[in-house]
Design a protein around this nucleic acid. Structure first.
Length: 550
RNA sequence: GCGCCAGUAGCUCAGUAGGAUAGAGCAGCAGCCUUCUAAGCUGCGGGUCAGGGGUUCGAAUCCCUUCUGGCGUGCCA
């Protein structure tokens, strides 16, 4: 917000001086506060094109820039940086604007209504959601919320792999457990079957309703019954886990349904028409290597069944057909070898594969007492998303996942996460919010809180910490646009921590309710009131609660 | 072997898409509660940005290369 104003001003001055500006320059907040509140490299960037020395160019610019009342000081520094020191009145004006916008603050039409499909989690419906799914859920959901706020038209979708080998194995595992309950000797439970306790629970539940009837069916009917039962139960379980995590989807797309609708044949015929399939060793292959993949891929196996790839591709095709401009898939780390073939298929079918964007979430390593916990779904040894939410709470879990950038491995120390103390930064941020609420409560109690704040109170806000708070608040609109554009929700966490730090410092240093004058109190209350609103917006984007007290 | 991702303080991680003296939290040390919540604040110590080349006014950031780790490389999903 402030940055844009300064940027626009610089551009105006450059044009006024009739200088060339062919290359982009930046306006930034310097790391070092001695370099001003904002700084630009424009003199260095434009020096070449204008055949002038950076410093003399900067001098000329500064002479013009200084005419604005927005700056207390504009100076030349280093090899040609122009540093701006903003005047309090500038901050105050910015603050008034933020305050006037209220809850709508940091909304924009930046995304221009671009239709974006976010596919995430899409876990196999063969067991409870695990930690990686939790990470994907937090990440995808927050990205969705931010994109929506800045003018994209995003939708969230969950692809259900309810067809294929793993479902057969699931049904067989359930059958074994069911027989076990009914007193059959099943011997050793097969290695490849699903070992988790949840299969036993499912078996008990099914036994209560269907009992022995299951075994009076034909083999085929029985498998269907077992599959349907297990899938609907497990899907419901996953959906509940996600809801506990405040993650909802606009669509749940079933692979089984897609297959039934004939999209598989559709995709096969498209690829055949594009003349990029062939038969070899009784299987049908896709010549994906012609389109950038490192080798060709099987579409139909020699036994006549299709590979996972085909319905998944069909699913992506429906996304395009439904009119989305951009498709974002949020995948786990084990999928990256799979992506080139989807891109290849896009190209083969004549679609622009640039519209498909893949975000890889790296794996989550669980540690317990400094030791890596190995997880295996088959063996039933996993820590579930529900376990996590129960133990550390939704807020901490979401925060933990959002706070790290996507393509970084995430080391999750269970013991540390269990400690609900100051080692967890989410409390630091929530505490800042709670403190503001506490001050406001006190102000109301002491009858300092006004019916409405007079606008010219802003003139009382002159302390460095107060201006720093305003500056951070003013950063939010641009930040959200960057997050949406680069798909980097983790920056919300950094922002929130920085803002919280200033609040804590401010709190420790100044009296609010009983400041030197009533007017000063009111001005500070007004500042905190707006800060509370902005923090509330950020917490909401992260799907984390903004507590009134802690 | 090949491909993708990563390597920043003791630990967990940021680093505003090339900017000035690389930051935060935790852990460690020393202080601060008769005043709106001490889950806080103030100060101190801590770095070969994995190594080496290159590109330029300027590199943690871009390019090349080596090393280390993770994942992938099925007619599994």
């Amino acid at each position: 917000m402030i940055k844009e104003i300064i940027h626009a001003h610089i551009t105006e001055v450059i044009d006024k001086l009739k200088l060339k500006r062919e290359r982009e320059y930046s306006v930034e907040i310097p790391n070092n506060t001695e370099h001003g509140d904002f700084s630009t490299n424009c003199a260095m960037i434009l020096a070449k094109d204008n055949k002038k020395a950076p410093k003399s160019l900067a001098e000329a610019l500064i002479k013009e820039l200084k005419k604005s009342k927005n700056y207390k000081k504009v100076e030349l520094a280093g090899p040609g940086f122009i540093n701006f020191y903003l005047s309090p009145s500038f901050y105050q004006r910015v603050f008034s604007e933020i305050r006037a916008t209220g809850a709508e603050y940091a909304t924009s039409d930046f995304g221009k209504g671009e239709r974006v499909l976010l596919e995430f989690v899409s876990a196999n419906p063969t067991g409870p959601l695990n930690i990686v799914s939790a990470r994907a859920a937090a990440f995808g959901d927050t990205l969705y919320r931010v994109m929506r706020r800045v003018g994209f038209d995003p939708a969230r979708e969950f692809y259900i792999n309810d067809a294929g080998n793993q479902v057969d194995i699931l049904a067989e595992s359930l059958e074994l457990r069911l027989r076990e309950i009914q007193g059959d000797r099943i011997g050793e439970f097969p290695y490849e079957a699903y070992h988790g306790e949840y299969v036993k629970h499912l078996a008990h539940k099914l036994n209560a309703t269907d009992g022995i009837r299951v075994f009076m069916m034909t083999e085929k009917d029985r498998m269907e019954r077992l599959k349907d039962f297990a899938l609907s139960e497990l899907l419901e379980m996953q959906r509940n886990s996600l809801e506990r995590f405040d993650v909802y989807f606009d669509g749940w797309v079933s692979e089984k349904t897609l297959r039934a609708e004939g999209v598989v044949e559709e995709v096969l015929s498209y690829l055949t028409e594009a003349d990029c399939t062939y038969e070899k060793e009784e299987a049908i292959w896709f010549a994906s290597s012609k389109y950038g993949d490192d080798k060709d891929r099987v579409l139909m196996k020699s036994d006549g069944s299709i590979t996972y790839f085909v319905p998944d591709l069909a699913y992506h095709l429906t996304k395009i057909q439904r009119g989305f401009d951009t498709l974002i898939d949020i995948f786990g780390p084990d999928h990256h070898g799979y992506v080139p073939r989807i891109r290849a298929a896009f190209r083969a079918m004549g679609y622009d594969d640039e519209m498909l964007e893949i975000i890889y979430l790296q794996q989550v390593n669980l540690f317990e007492s400094g030791e890596r916990v190995k997880m295996s779904k088959r063996a039933g040894k996993i820590v579930t998303m529900d376990d996590l939410v129960s133990e550390v709470g939704k807020d901490a879990a979401r925060y933990f996942f959002i706070a790290r950038k996507a393509n970084a491995h995430l080391n999750f120390d269970l013991e540390l996460a269990l400690k609900q103390n100051n080692e967890n930064p989410v409390y630091y941020c929530q505490y800042a919010h709670a403190r503001i609420c506490s001050i406001i409560k006190k102000a109301r109690k002491d009858k300092v809180w006004p019916r409405s704040f007079k606008k010219d109170l802003v003139k009382k806000l002159t302390k460095p910490e107060e201006l720093a708070i305003i500056q951070r608040l003013a950063d939010l609109p641009e930040l959200l646009e960057l997050i949406a554009e680069y798909r980097e929700p983790h920056r919300l966490a950094t922002y929130l921590e920085e803002l919280s730090a200033i609040i804590h410092r401010y709190y420790a240093r100044y009296q609010i309710v009983s400041a030197k004058s009533k007017e000063l109190s009111l001005a500070r209350l007004m500042l905190l009131d707006t800060t509370k609103t902005v923090m509330g917006i950020v917490f909401d984007l992260m799907g984390i609660s903004a507590p009134e007290k802690m």
